[in-house]
Every structure is written in structure tokens, then in C-alpha cells.
Design a protein around this nucleic acid. Structure first.
Lengths: 185, 185, 185, 185
DNA sequence: AATGAATGAGTGTTCATTCAT
DNA sequence: GATGAATGAACACTCATTCAT
């Protein structure tokens, strides 16, 4: 099991990665209204090539989002092991905010009709939830976050930060700092 | 005051109001993807009539948003005079959340490229800021909100609540409650 | 009842008729593969205008077919009243064949997936069946068609003639003449 | 006889045959709208392999049709030698009808613009005509078909049966039976 | 002032054909 | 010889905007 897809040919893999990268930037900059043609143009490939790799626009959006979720989960793990575990959760929130300017696509796409992370990439969702859980446990163990705070609270805060970021960076910043005060004992 | 436009004829004013009302409902229900034709159809007028009053789709969105801001400012004033002033600000936040399910359009439209409330309706912005300022002063005077909280903090919280609402009701709920904890002394 | 649609504005009606006419010719000449854009171009209108009148390609095909069925029913009635009733049914078959060169669209469209005359225009279907029934009764009464022949036989012959016409005029001609021999006592 | 093409390598020949077989089934089932990619996928070969053997879609269609014509000619010969020669021609017609459900592709493809059997495979055409001629001669010799019927009449009936089959099985059935009555003395 | 028909560029998606591996 | 990725034009359909009535 797990070998249902042979590895892509080198050139195809290169194109796929290039499209994903360009799509991420384009979505972050322009929102979900960017056209597939525009993404293809920027990536220097034909529209059909985008279609080969991502047969619907939703599939492309999902792939971008899944990639972003992986990156965030990586970031969470790094913060936990490389710094002060009691502050890692707050650091993570700030990273989400700081990088969120590029993440208009996530909130847009997920708010937009019909993309459910649980459905398109259950693995990514689990990975993300696990990382968040570790951040939370570390913080509560060291007393920097109230014991009454739950993992869903934390996830809501992350998602909310992204949603606010999509609208306005300063708004996200201010509200998150207020909510962080509410997290502390 | 010295407006260059004469008052609208009665039937025109009625049409304008009807379009606005229908547009608000349609945008709240369907998001910004509703077509102008659909709004015209629901309002029982021709597409050209919508165009006469709102020459671009952005103009219609702006007008809807301005109307909504007026309503929110009214709500703020009512809460201040009819209930406990020390809790009015929290009540207001909860109203924003509760009604926000109808306000997907606001965040959508404002997050979408290029609508700036300060530009399209400086008066509405002022009115809203004033009402928020009064809520804040009342709360701080009675000690229910920390003295370090500023009007921009509060505005960010309102706007953030709307942005989160557009994505997910529960997220908005949880994050706002956390932030309210951060507001209290 | 029956006034659910107000009469079209004069210019709209003209456009609708022009599109239908052009569509009939184009479909007859090129088959169902003609694009809507091509039809719009030939009719001298925008693609959106075609769409306003016929929101899907199937709707346009249906309208063309219904129009054609009406014309055929008219022809049947004329043949019955203006000539020899005993030969009217054979004359009608020959007209179908002769004009069928323009009718590639009918067989194509009806063979193609999903257009059912009974569904798109039950009235037209009834009108057609009635006209065929009258042709058959008149012929059987005068003894020019066997009593064992039924209305469905006759309808099959018409439809088959169209289907063969779409492929080859001579084939339709020869087979129909053979079948006519089978019809006679 | 002196063909300019050397015989195909064994594996290439196997691929060619497999593609043809799959193409016949796919065309019969789905009509001419099946994509080359889909046929390649079902045959388990790459799209380029299909292209190597059949450089255009029309070439593939032609090859399928030619193959089908060969099969029909074989059937005709078998019926002539293994059964009652006087009824063989009627049996053959019924076989064409019965199997015609799989032959939507023939009528589709030949009705569609530009494939002419005489051009793409004069040999197959001759073989088919010869077999039909033999059926006809046998029937007329035994008195089961009128002497006035010609080979082109019979060919029209076969082709017409296929054309009608593509539209509706019952139509083909009824019309062919009527025409058979016209064939008998 | 109001209507609603017309426009035409734009969307996501599809696919026959070509070509680098 | 075989592969399957890439191409790019085409499709049906949509809609904000304009304009004749």
C-alpha cells in the first residue's frame, strides 16, 4: 500500500512544484479570484498543464492549503524544540500573524464554498492538530496558559488569526494580543 | 449641507431603498458572488435601475456596508442608554457576533480588493468611531475594561469579529470570548 | 393561464427569431458540433444574447427541434387537405426525406445524449402524433396502407428516415421506398 | 504485396490490436466523444502509442470501422454457407440490427464530417460489397427476394439499419421489418 | 426615471496533438 | 518503440456594464 502513484517524472515534478509555488504567491496576493490561466501564465506553462496536475480549481486551492498547513505544523514543532516551550504557543501565534499576510488564500478558500480540510487532507489536519496539542500541553505544563483552555480554543485562535489577517494585519495583531492576555492565567 | 444633488423623487427613493435592502439580504446569504441581475430580479426592478443608483457593483457594496455601519452605531447607542453601561461594550460585541451570520458580505467585500470605508463613507466611519468611543469610556469609567485598552483596540475587535464570523461562527465566538477576558482588568 | 411570460420586446423577439433561424441553418449544415459562439457570430449578436434566450445549448437545440416538428405537422395537415388523402402519407414521407438534408440536427440532437422531445415540448409531440394518426387513418380508409400498420410503425418510419438522412440521402431514399412497399397491401 | 511498410514488431502489433479492440468497445459504448486519452488508459498504453499507430482521431475511427466491416463480411459468408441461403440475407439484416447497439460509433463517425469508407479502405468496401452480392444472388435464386432489388438497395438497407440503430433500436427494428416486406416478392 | 435586452471579455475545464524523456 | 507530460485553442456558460426603447 502507498505505491498507488508512481513517482512523477522529473520534469513533471518540477512543473507541479512550480505551479504550486506560483499559485501560492498568486493566491496570497490576489485572493481566490486569480484565474487558472493567470497562474499558468506566471508559471510559464500551458493551462492544460495546470489542469493535468490539478483537475479543478478547488484541487489546486486544496493543494496550496495542505502545503501551508504542513509548513505551519513544521514551524510549531521547531518552536517547541528550539526555544522556550512555555512561550512557544505565543510565538507560534505571532508567526501565523506575521506570515499571514501571504495567507489570504487560506481563509478565502476555506471560507469560500466547499473546501474542508478534514476532507481534502485528513493527514494534514491531524498533523496540525497534534502540533497544536503539543504546544498547548507544553504551555500549560509550564503555567503560561490557563488550564481551562482547550485545543479547540487554540485552533479557533489560529484560524481566527488567519481570517482576520485576510482582512487587515493590524486588526489581527491587536485582537490576537488581547486574546493572548485571555489565555494567560 | 449644500449637497449638489437634489433630493430623489419619491419613487426613486423607494426603489433605492428597496434595492439596498434586497442587496443586503442577498449579499449576506450568498456572499459577494450574487449577480447584479439577481439583486435586480429580487427587488423587482430592472438591472438598469440598479445601475442608475449604484453605477458599479463596488458602489452597491459600499452603500450596503455604510448602511450596516449606521445600524451598528445605532445599536451601540441603544445599548448604552437602555442597559448597564459597564457591560454595554461586551453586549455590543455579542450582538455583532450574533448578527454577524448576516454579515459575511462586509468582511468579504472589505477583504476583497479595494473598498475602504474611510474613503467611501467618512461620515459613517466617524459615527461608528464615536459610538465605540462612548461604549469604551462608559466601560472604563465603571472599571469593567482595563484603562490601557484604546478605541482602536476595540474597533479591531469588532472588525475582527466580523472577519471571523465570515469564516466560522464558532471560531468568532471562542476568540471573542478570549479577547473579552483580555479586556477585563 | 398562459400569460406567465409577457410578450418579448420587439427587438428581443427579432433577435430571438434571428438566432433560431441561424441556429437551424448552422445545425443543419454542420451538425450539433457548431459552437454557440459561431451561431452568435453568424446571427450578428453577442454570445450573451444567445444565452439570454437559450440558457443552455440543449435549450437552443430543443427550440430548433420543436420548431421543426411544428413545421412537419403543418406539412402533414396541408398534404391531407390539399391533395389525395390516400397518398398523403407517402407524400409526407417523401417530403421528410427531401427536406431532411437540412435536418441533420434533429437526428443528431435526439440521438445525442439527453434530449427527449416528450419532455422539452409535449405539445409538439402530441401535435405531431395527431397529424401522423390522421395521415394513417386516411390512407388505411382508402386502402392504400395495410390495416396491420400502426401509428408507432409510421412514427418509426419518419424518425428512421431522418436518422438515415443524417447519414446519407440516397440511403434514406432507397430504404424508405422499400418500406413504403411494405406498407402497401 | 510489396507493401512499403515492414511488418510490425510483435509487441507493436499486439499494442495496435489492443488499442483497436478497446477503441471499438469505447466508441460503441460512449460514442465518438470518448477521448484518445481515455482509450489509451483503457488499453494500458500511453497516449503517444495510440498516436504512433493512428496519427489522428479520424484514423483511429477509420480503422475501427474497417475492422467492423470485415467482421460483417465474415458474418455474411458464414450465414450463406452454414444455413438456408434463401433466408441468409434476412438473417444478416437481423444480425446487423441486433449487434448494432454496439455500432453507434459507425453511424456517428460516418455521419460526422468527412470519413468516407471508399476512401479509407477501398478493399474493405469491395469485400463487403461482394459478400452482400452473394447474399442477394442466393436469395433471388431461391425466390425469397424480388428480382428488381439491386445490390445498392441492399447496401442502403444495411447502412440505414446502422444509422437508425444509432438513434433508436426499436425504430431500426420496425423500419427494417417493413423494408424486408418490401424485399419479398 | 425605468426598463431589460445586448454586449463581449472572461471563467473553469477539456482534449487532439506534439515532443522530451 | 513506448511513454505520458505539455501544449494551446476551443468549449459552454456567466455577468458587470451599457444603451435603445
Amino acid at each position: 500500500m502507498g505505491d498507488s502513484k508512481r513517482p512523477l517524472r522529473a520534469d513533471a515534478a518540477r512543473n507541479r512544484a512550480r505551479v504550486l509555488e506560483v499559485a501560492y504567491e498568486a493566491l496570497a496576493t490576489e485572493g481566490t479570484s486569480v484565474s487558472i490561466d493567470e497562474i499558468a501564465r506566471r508559471a510559464g506553462v500551458g493551462a492544460g498543464t495546470v489542469w493535468r496536475h490539478f483537475p479543478t480549481k478547488a484541487a489546486l486551492l486544496s493543494a496550496v492549503i495542505v502545503g501551508r498547513v504542513h509548513t505551519l505544523a513544521d514551524t510549531a514543532r521547531e518552536l517547541l524544540t528550539s526555544g522556550d516551550p512555555s512561550e512557544a504557543v505565543f510565538e507560534f501565534l505571532r508567526v501565523v500573524i506575521a506570515e499571514g499576510a501571504l495567507d489570504r488564500s487560506l481563509a478565502d478558500a476555506m471560507a469560500g464554498s466547499g473546501i474542508d480540510l478534514d476532507v481534502v487532507a485528513p493527514g494534514a489536519e491531524d498533523e496540525f492538530r497534534t502540533a497544536l496539542g503539543e504546544l498547548l500541553v507544553a504551555a500549560q505544563r509550564s503555567g503560561s496558559v490557563k488550564a481551562t483552555i482547550t485545543a479547540p480554543d487554540l485552533k479557533a485562535l489560529i484560524v481566527g488569526a488567519l481570517a482576520m489577517q485576510a482582512y487587515d494585519a493590524e486588526v489581527a495583531d491587536r485582537v490576537t494580543e488581547m486574546a493572548i492576555l485571555g489565555l494567560r492565567p
